[in-house]
C-alpha cells in the first residue's frame, strides 16, 4: 500500500468549461507541497477535489491507498476566510471539531483540549470570544487551530493567509512551519497560493499550474534546509534564481494564453 496522495488523470469541468485537465501527481506522506498559479488556474478547485467537496469528471484521487470519496476527517482544510462559524465562540468552534474527530471525549474535556489548541496558535486571549470580535489574522489562527484539532494527517490549505496584511501573513507562515516541523510524523500539507515567496519559503516542492484549463506546467523541488530563516533565505542567490525561474514560467503561461485568445 502506498502512503500519501496519488492523483491520476484528473479532469474537471464546470458547465462545459474545462477547469482541470489530466492532473497527475504523487505526493508522499509528510511532504509540504504548494500549488502555485495565477487566479483562475483551478488550484482551489483541485483542493476541493482533494477535500472531497467535489468529485472529478474523470481520473482518480487517492489518499493512503484509499480512493477519495466525499469529505473525511482524514483530510482537514483551511479556507481563505470565514472558516469559523460566526454564531459559535472560538473555543466552541474548535470543541465541535474535537467532538466530531474524537466523539469519546467528554464535553468539558473538549473545551479544555480546544483551549490547548488555541494556546498553541497564540490565541489564548480569544478563548471566550466570538469570531466577530477578532481581527482577520486572529480568525485565521482560529481556523488553523481547528484544522489541527481535527488531527487530520493531510492538511489542505486554500490561500489561508491571502486576506492578511504582510506582517500577520509572515507571522502565520512562521507559526505554520513551527507547528509542522515540530510534529512527528509530519503532516502532509497541500498549500494553495499565488505568492511565489510564500511558496518557496514554506514548501518542499512547488507544483505550478497553468491556467485555462488548469494543468501541471512545472514541478520543482525546493531544497533549502529546514528551520529556514526568512531574512537570510530571501537574500540568498539560490532563492532569487529559483524565484525568477518560477516567475518566468508563470509569465510564459500567461503569454501563451494571451496569444491563444
Amino acid at each position: 500500500m502506498s502512503t500519501g496522495l496519488i492523483l491520476e488523470g484528473v479532469d474537471f469541468a464546470y458547465e462545459d468549461t474545462p477547469i482541470l485537465e489530466r492532473i497527475s501527481l504523487q505526493i508522499p506522506a509528510g511532504q509540504f507541497v504548494t500549488l502555485l498559479g495565477s487566479s483562475g488556474c483551478g488550484k482551489s478547485t483541485l483542493l476541493r477535489l482533494l477535500a472531497g467537496l467535489q468529485a472529478p469528471d474523470r481520473g482518480s484521487l487517492g489518499w493512503n491507498g484509499q480512493p477519495i470519496r466525499g469529505t473525511s476527517l482524514e483530510r482537514g482544510i483551511v479556507f481563505q476566510d470565514y472558516a469559523l462559524f460566526p454564531w459559535m465562540s472560538v473555543v466552541d468552534n474548535i470543541a465541535v471539531a474535537i467532538g466530531k474527530a474524537r466523539p469519546e471525549t467528554g464535553k468539558a474535556a473538549r473545551r479544555e483540549e480546544a483551549a490547548e489548541y488555541l494556546r498553541k496558535v497564540g490565541l489564548e486571549s480569544a478563548i471566550g470570544k466570538y469570531p466577530f470580535e477578532l481581527s482577520g489574522g486572529m480568525r485565521q489562527r482560529g481556523a488553523i487551530a481547528r484544522a489541527l484539532a481535527l488531527g487530520s494527517p493531510l492538511l489542505l490549505m486554500d490561500e489561508p493567509f491571502g486576506a492578511l496584511d504582510p506582517v500577520n501573513r509572515a507571522r502565520l507562515q512562521d507559526l505554520l512551519l513551527e507547528i509542522w516541523e515540530a510534529a512527528s510524523p509530519r503532516k502532509t500539507i497541500v498549500f494553495v497560493t499565488h505568492d511565489i515567496d510564500e511558496a518557496l519559503y514554506l514548501s518542499d516542492r512547488v507544483v505550478i499550474l497553468g491556467a485555462a484549463p488548469g494543468r501541471v506546467i512545472a514541478d520543482l523541488s525546493v531544497d533549502f534546509p529546514r528551520h529556514r530563516d526568512r531574512r537570510t533565505l530571501f537574500d540568498g542567490e539560490d532563492f532569487r534564481t529559483q524565484r525568477e525561474a518560477i516567475a518566468e514560467t508563470l509569465a510564459a503561461d500567461t503569454l501563451r494564453r494571451l496569444i491563444a485568445a
Binding site: 476541493r48 477535500a51 472531497g52 469529505t71 482544510i77 479556507f79 472558516a83 462559524f85 466530531k100 481535527l150
Partner: peptide, 12 residues
C-alpha cells in the same frame, strides 16, 4: 457555500 463546506469538512 462556505458554511456548507465547513460543515462537510467537520463531518456535520
Amino acid at each position: 457555500q462556505r458554511y456548507r463546506d465547513n460543515a462537510g469538512i467537520l463531518g456535520l
